[in-house]
Amino acid sequence: MNEPDSCSIFTHRRQGKIKKSAGEKNQRKQSGQRPAFRKVLQKSALAFLAMAPLLLGVIGLVGLFQVIVTPKMLASLFRGNSLFVDTLLGTLTGSIAAGNPIVSYLVGGELLDNGVSLYAVTAFILSWVTLGFVQLPAEVEVFGGEFTLYRNILSFIFTMFIAVLTTLTLQVLS
């Protein structure tokens, strides 16, 4: 068997190194070349357009929920419950309701005036933004079922925790 001498191995390795570095340079050159901004913008717009039916469906549901689930209806749920049930109800109703967060502040303020606990109102305000039944189908489609399930469970638990912690902290501070 003919073994290559040390010199030829050295030369071979060097050639390999040179080839590799040239390849790397080419790759860097290629990756360094930016496509035209118009093309990138077009690609982004197309990706967004592809998602249009999904987003329009969610918006349609938001409108429907805003009419069906009225603030009056939500307020009527919080009557004579224990703190835990009120907090749970606050989280659930906040996640069912849809719309601008300002509405959640207005409804939350009304609930407080009507004697509903701060635990429930805080949970309601939080879950209004982070949880949402109407956007679940879109979230599943975009991020997958597992991500949506874990995120919403975590968000639900933390909403209740934060509501309790905030109220307790305020009680201690005052």
């Binding site: 990706a47 249009a52 039916p53 987003l55 469906g57 349609g60 429907l64 189908p137």
Partner: peptide
């Protein structure tokens, strides 16, 4: 998601909402 052919997503969901309306 890159280099995927263009396709609308959530068509059936949108259709369901339209039927609901």
């Amino acid at each position: 998601q890159q280099n995927k052919p263009f396709a609308f997503r959530g068509k059936y969901f949108f259709l369901s909402v339209c039927i609901l309306y």
